[in-house]
């Protein structure tokens, strides 16, 4: 069975929020739209977003890491939000594992959001139905789009290519390889939700300079006579 998912590379995410707004603009006019904004030009502007980029500081000065952390629905393999839905509005697609909400069936009871430990479901406060990341279901299943564009909007937009997309059940897919080789991990593994989305950790490149590196025979200083001569008496100055 196919399980489509995102693998998010924290090693290169610079926290630019491209995924946040590219998602918003695609989906507000798409199958999952609208994505309503409340008080768009007033105090306390808020609205529905399927995707948020958060920032964490790890460690204390001067050994501080600033970690940008994009978060959207993780499309769990065992999504706790689905069985609790009383109407069947929340469901997991059998063909590709994407977790979706059918707004026409949703009664806005919010129980699914209680049953999600990740806080990725957001109630549309105007339409009063639950909304969430669809992995751009209307892009990835649209066969009229060219193959290269059959990806979630956030993946296409991401300037650092920090969002890999593919089938985590296919061991040869880019995402599976990344998870395997780069230490991909799931969020809150303690709940057994088996999130399909994974995260790739920060990696550090170090450089080690040895004493030998600094003492070499081809040092260009050896080509210079570093003593500075200036105004010294020369043979010609000497009166015999």
């Amino acid at each position: 069975m196919t399980q489509l998912a995102l693998v998010i590379d924290l090693n290169v995410c610079v926290g630019c929020h491209a995924c946040v707004t590219s998602c918003k603009q695609w989906n507000t006019s798409g199958w999952a739209g609208p994505m309503v904004d409340e008080n768009p030009y007033d105090a306390n502007p808020t609205g529905t977003f399927f995707n948020r980029v958060q920032t964490y500081e790890v460690g204390s000065f001067p050994s501080t890491e600033t970690v940008h952390f994009p978060k959207s629905c993780l499309h769990c393999e065992d999504p706790p939000c689905v069985p609790v839905c009383p109407t069947g509005a929340s469901y997991k697609r059998e063909d590709n594992g994407v977790v979706l909400v059918d707004y026409d069936k949703c009664i806005g009871c919010k129980y699914c959001s209680w049953a999600c430990p990740y806080g990725v479901r957001e109630l549309d406060e105007q339409q009063k139905v639950m909304k969430k990341c669809t992995l751009c279901i209307d892009r990835i299943t649209d066969h009229t789009l060219p193959e290269a564009e059959r990806k979630p909007a956030c993946v296409i937009a991401c300037p650092t290519n920090a969002r890999l997309y593919g089938d985590v059940h296919d061991p040869d897919s880019e995402v599976s390889v990344a998870i395997r080789e780069r230490g991909g991990y799931a969020l809150m593994p303690e709940w057994g939700t088996n999130p399909a989305n994974h995260y790739l950790p920060r990696q550090k490149t170090h450089m080690h300079v040895t004493e030998e590196d600094l003492q070499r025979s081809d040092n260009p200083l050896t080509k210079e006579d570093i003593t500075v001569y200036q105004g010294e008496e020369t043979m010609e100055d000497v009166t015999w």
Binding site: N39, Y56, E57, V58, G59, T66, V67, K110
Partner: peptide, 30 residues
């Protein structure tokens, strides 16, 4: 669950600096 398992970073000193938006939202209210 704690911040370590939430973002998958094993470090005791993790502090959130931004939740990613400036106002409240369903997630901050519910």
């Amino acid at each position: 669950s704690n911040l370590q398992t939430a973002i998958g970073i094993r470090h005791r000193g993790i502090v959130q600096k931004s939740q990613g938006f400036s106002a409240d939202s369903f997630n901050t209210r519910e």
